[in-house]
């Protein structure tokens, strides 16, 4: 991909064909051939026991790592052939992790703006965007606070704002509500749904929480590196 060119309009946000991921030279088989697809504008939950490969799959979709074998298309592009994965992540994907990963010596606003740094946006626009997003996640009064001065729920909401600052097409969330109170969790989920409704953002969210899964259009369940119920009209393995 190059420049600010957006993803070609296609039906699928993610298409995984027989994706395998091994660690430690095959000693750990984290994913054993995963096959599924996610439509644009869908909100999909990934569930499964701990250690089943959910995070591994999300990282592969997010181009943070490469599969051992198989084919992964994200927003219409085969990841194996994308030259600038950094730009893909920065411009089109948004990540929310279980931990907030906020940089402690930067204010919430500065943290939210980190994904915009490589984009060279005008300063005023960046500041406006950060303020707007922090407002949207209910942190309008915390813009210039350092993370230590904020509660756990506030930090996670700031991390969500950071994921949204570049208007991602695809939002990838790894147990975003796993370490926050239920009220914050509900709030984050509300935000995801409204983004999906307003902008057609595709959301993939790993969760242990059945309530969260219930709010998604459908769930994919992974057990031991395999998808239990293949969905989305694709052929199973």
């Amino acid at each position: 991909m190059n420049g600010t060119e957006r993803a070609p309009a296609g039906e699928l946000a993610v298409r995984a064909e027989d994706v395998v991921k091994h660690y430690d030279g095959g000693l750990v088989q984290a994913l054993r051939g995963v096959h599924f697809s996610v439509h644009r504008g869908e909100m999909v939950a990934i569930t499964g026991p701990s250690g089943s490969g959910k995070t591994t799959l999300l990282h592969l979709i997010g181009a943070l790592d490469r599969p051992t074998s198989g084919r992964l298309e994200v927003l219409g592009r085969d990841l194996a052939h994308v030259r600038d994965l950094d730009a893909l992540r920065g411009r089109e994907l948004g990540f929310v992790f279980q931990l907030h990963y906020l940089i402690p010596n930067l204010t919430l606003r500065e943290n939210v703006l980190l994904p915009t740094v490589p984009l060279r946006l005008p300063r005023t626009e960046r500041r406006r965007k950060a303020a707007e997003l922090l407002e949207r996640v209910g942190l309008g009064h915390r813009v210039d606070f350092l993370p230590v001065k904020c509660s756990g729920g506030e930090r996670q909401r700031a991390a969500v704002a950071r994921a949204l600052v570049n208007d991602p097409e695809l939002l990838l969330a790894d147990e975003p509500t796993g370490s926050v109170d239920s009220e914050t969790g509900a709030r984050i989920l509300d935000l995801f749904s409204s983004l999906r409704d307003e902008r057609g953002t595709t959301v993939i969210v790993i969760t242990h929480n059945p309530e969260v899964a219930a709010r998604c259009d459908r769930s994919l369940r992974i057990v031991d590196g395999r998808l239990l119920r293949p969905e989305g009209g694709e052929a199973s393995e």
Binding site: L64, D86, F95, Y101, P118, R162
Partner: peptide, 16 residues
Amino acid sequence: TKEIGLLRAVGWSRWR
């Protein structure tokens, strides 16, 4: 280390 991982996730290149 974790911060660097986060920065890479949000689009910062190795070079940056």
